[in-house]
């Protein structure tokens, strides 16, 4: 069911992007949608729930706000005349409580685009995410901020 909705959405998106709703173009879009859904078959293991859609929307909202804040903060640091004192770079080991590949990948991407942080590496056993911080204060405060902010929201989305 989810696959059919996804496929129809893909066809409509294709037609809208090419700005062409003629029959041959819709057929071409349908072929492409079937191929895409075929590739993504294993990702549809669980049905899409309404609560999940809402938590995805909330995560997206937080993310956009954080992205804008982070761009402003980087801009301010770049424009500081005395760079050496404004910067306190560090690589911090963040203990992961999320486990699956999708969750870790989402969290790492979110961390990269939020204020002052950049995910660098994941340990072999997937228990630690190494995060580079532009100007950190204390290790504990830094870890608590990520754990209570994005990690909890990512868990809600994939729960």
């Amino acid at each position: 069911m989810t696959q059919i909705i996804f496929g129809v959405a893909l066809v409509l998106l294709w037609a809208a992007i090419t700005a062409n709703f003629s029959t041959p173009n819709l057929v071409l879009g349908a072929v492409l949608a079937i191929v895409a859904v075929g590739f993504l078959r294993r990702s549809f293991s669980e049905p899409l729930r309404f609560g999940k859609v809402r938590s995805i929307a909330r995560l997206t909202g937080t993310f956009v706000v954080e992205l804008l804040i982070s761009a402003f903060r980087v801009a301010r640091i770049v424009l500081t005349p005395d760079l050496q004192s404004a910067l306190r770079p560090a690589i911090i080991a963040f203990p992961l409580s999320v486990k699956s590949d999708a969750e870790i990948a989402t969290l790492a991407n979110l961390i990269t685009l939020t204020p002052g942080t950049l995910s660098v590496d994941v340990s072999e056993d997937r228990s630690v995410l190494y995060v580079h911080a532009l100007s950190f204060t204390t290790r504990e405060a830094f870890i608590a901020e990520i754990a209570n902010g994005f990690e909890r929201q990512v868990k809600e989305v994939f729960a």
């Binding site: 992205l67 804008l68 761009a71 760079l83 910067l87 770079p89 690589i91 685009l113 950049l118 580079h132």
Partner: peptide, 18 residues
């Protein structure tokens, strides 16, 4: 302006994307 690769990456990835 930034002093090393990782700090430069902050500027390029965030400000660049925005």
């Amino acid at each position: 302006r930034l002093p090393d690769l990782l700090t430069r990456m902050h500027a390029a990835s965030k400000a660049g994307a925005v």
